[in-house]
């Protein structure tokens, strides 16, 4: 598996929003990461830090006032320069399956889950004929643990958890090499979070047809869900990925190394439940150097200069020794 090339390879990805009056909002800056076949990468970070914008950039769904730079290679295709026609015909649904944040908004209200699944199968696969479509739709539902006896219901007749599974089933239909899940478990109780997360994990563990491997990029606020299924964690702050870490080391011992990541974990109700002091920075007016400096208890004068690139973008990262002390 290690010898297989990454499913997604992002280099120097930046997104700027041009605002009225000539202001620029730096929503994503210089993101760099890979997602390997069979891997789940969790992207976490403070609200408004640019996670969803990054996802929209990969799908070509940014609004008109956005400018991108860098590259995001999915196989040989650069998602950032691909035209809308390519994105619509070969990327969305086929190369990237999207598990949306609010399933209710993603399902068509006037049609049953079965009819939406069958239509998606017909659009994204070579399956033809009524009986075959019906069987394929049922198989897709089963993969997402959507109960067969609810297939003839309309979206408003589903609980949040079932609507989430319906949306997940739709995302799995195209058997895309990359699954992109933006907050796939929001609003679900712990049991349903675990089940949804496990379904996504199972999908990634199954290399799929031809054994080419599947990968999952999961954006989430739910650190317990991330801990449950992620292999690696990318932490985003003020548009930058400030730490890339092995999930077990990050959530367990020795713990995160970037001061922001540590603050984020300490804010959990089963840890200190203390928010990171201060307010998130204005992405339209970021300071020079480290954007976290104003809120960081380790900041020094050096932090007014750009932190070094690498897996931890910090001048004074925690090292395993002071974590143990």
């Amino acid at each position: 598996m290690d010898s297989m090339p990454p499913v997604l390879s992002v280099r120097g990805l930046s997104v700027r929003f041009l605002m009225p009056g000539g202001r620029r909002v730096a929503a994503v800056t210089d993101a760099r990461f890979d997602v390997a076949p069979g891997e789940c990468l969790a992207l976490i970070g403070e609200s408004g830090c640019g996670k969803s914008v990054l996802a929209s950039a990969l799908l070509g769904l940014l609004p008109g006032n956005a400018q991108t730079a860098g590259s995001a290679l999915l196989g040989d295709l650069d998602l950032l320069t691909a035209g809308e026609r390519t994105l619509a015909r070969t990327v969305r649904g086929r190369l990237i399956g999207l598990v949306p944040q609010s399933p209710a908004a993603h399902l068509t209200p006037v049609r049953t889950v079965r009819s939406q699944l069958e239509e998606t199968v017909a659009t994204l696969t070579t399956t033809r004929g009524r009986a075959a479509l019906r069987a394929a739709a049922e198989a897709a539902a089963e993969r997402a643990a959507f109960p067969a006896d609810h297939l003839d219901r309309h979206p408003h007749q589903l609980s949040g958890g079932l609507a989430q599974r319906a949306a997940t089933a739709l995302a799995l239909v195209g058997d895309a090499p990359l699954l992109l899940a933006d907050e796939p478990t929001t609003g679900l109780d712990r049991d349903l979070v675990d089940r949804t997360a496990d379904e996504l994990r199972r999908h990634v563990d199954d290399p799929g047809e031809g054994g080419r491997g599947r990968a999952l990029l999961m954006i989430t606020h739910d650190l317990a869900a991330a801990e449950r299924i992620a292999d690696r964690v990318a932490v985003m702050y003020a548009g930058r990925i400030v730490e890339l870490a092995d999930a077990a080391a990050f959530f367990g011992s020795p713990g995160p190394r970037h001061p922001y990541s540590r603050g984020l974990l300490q804010a959990l109700p089963d840890r200190a439940f203390t928010p990171i002091p201060g307010m998130p920075p204005e992405l339209g007016d970021l300071p020079a150097g480290c954007a976290f400096a104003a809120r960081c208890d380790r900041a020094t004068d050096t932090c007014a200069t750009e932190p070094p690139p690498g897996t931890v973008a910090c001048h004074h990262p925690h090292v395993p020794e002071d974590v143990r002390a």
């Binding site: 976490i44 403070e46 609200s47 984020l264 804010a267 109700p269 439940f273 928010p275 990171i276």
Partner: peptide
Amino acid sequence: DEMTAMLDASTAAALVA
């Protein structure tokens, strides 16, 4: 009603505070 369900841990803790 689930005020913090969509929020990251730190923003959630800040809104609770």
